[in-house]
């Protein structure tokens, strides 16, 4: 035992279970194969990015990934390609995503704390129900939710996209945090209890400060999924001033009537860019988050 919290670390990058036994030939083969697969997988993405910097006539003239003529023209056309600029829609997306992150972090950590650390009647029952909602498709509740928000006058506002997150509707994050909280030694809580701390103080001063890794993971996932979400904004947002970047992009497909691929690819690149940056920054957290919950997305 140590007195530091055990941070779940299912992915240790460089330990090797059955390495070194392969012949150099075989190793080279595996490398070549992996590299080839990587290239094929990344090719469409690379092509998208490079094409966004090519002049329109070059896009379909060559499969080369290096623009012969580098131009930001497509970005200029795309940025103002709709009646509302993409900048505006990016801000909408940002606002929604940030609010969702805040909501998820607060509400899910509270629920996870209750499930892992507090004693109360019916805890097991509620926990089982929570796990059940993990599996349940949202379609079952979609229409009544829509009708409810319609009645609230929330349709065509960001409320339906944001408010539910303050009520821990994303069970995935509860599950993620439950897994992590379970790794924090219970004796820390007990020491705090002996120190006279109540549940709230233990939560704020002991559990949360020790949970920065899982909070960061939840925040990043939350942000990315919200940023990427298409279905909910599609249903709830009607006016183009309220659109998220995803909705805007999809509208742009229609608006260009597929004639301005350059602008389309430029805007596509831009909407993916924030996710890509987060991926670069938090790759390890994301991968560990998936490995420890065993949940995909």
């Amino acid at each position: 035992m140590t007195d530091t919290a055990h941070l779940p670390s299912a992915v240790e990058a460089d330990s090797t279970p059955d390495g070194d036994k392969h012949s150099p030939m075989k190793r080279a083969l595996i490398y070549a194969l992996l590299t080839a697969v990587s290239f094929i997988m990344l090719y469409p993405l690379l092509w998208m990015v490079s094409s966004s910097f090519k002049p329109e006539n070059e896009i379909f003239a060559t499969t080369s990934l290096i623009p012969q003529e580098f131009t930001l023209d497509a970005y200029r056309r795309g940025w103002n390609g709709l009646s509302v600029s993409f900048g505006h829609m990016f801000l909408n997306s940002l606002l929604i995503s940030v609010l969702v992150v805040v909501g998820n972090l607060i509400s899910c950590s509270m629920a996870a704390y209750a499930f892992t650390r507090l004693q109360f009647k019916g805890r097991g029952f509620w926990f089982a129900l929570m796990l059940g909602t993990l599996m349940m498709p949202q379609h079952a509740v979609l229409i009544p939710q829509y009708l409810m928000f319609l009645k609230f006058g929330w349709v065509n506002t960001i409320m339906p996209l944001v408010v539910p997150k303050f009520f821990a509707i994303d069970a995935f994050f509860i599950f993620l945090m439950v897994q992590f909280f379970r790794g924090i030694p219970r004796e820390l809580d007990e020491a705090a209890i002996m120190d006279g701390a109540g549940p709230l103080r233990i939560f704020l001063k002991v559990i949360l400060p020790l949970s920065t890794p899982v909070m960061a993971t939840a925040a990043v996932f939350s942000f990315i999924w919200t940023w990427d979400d298409f279905f909910a904004p599609l249903i709830y947002l009607n006016d183009i001033e309220k659109y998220t970047a995803q909705l805007g992009l999809r509208t742009f497909v229609d608006a260009t009537a597929q004639s301005d691929w350059g602008a389309l690819l430029a805007m596509s690149t831009l909407t993916v860019l924030p996710i890509f940056i987060l991926f670069l920054l938090f790759q390890r957290l994301l991968i560990e988050g998936i490995a420890t919950t065993g949940m995909k997305r």
Binding site: M110, A111, A114, F120, W126, F166, F167, A168, G198, P199
Partner: peptide, 9 residues
Amino acid sequence: GGYGFLLPW
């Protein structure tokens, strides 16, 4: 305490 924290969910 328990239900307080569980309330949002």
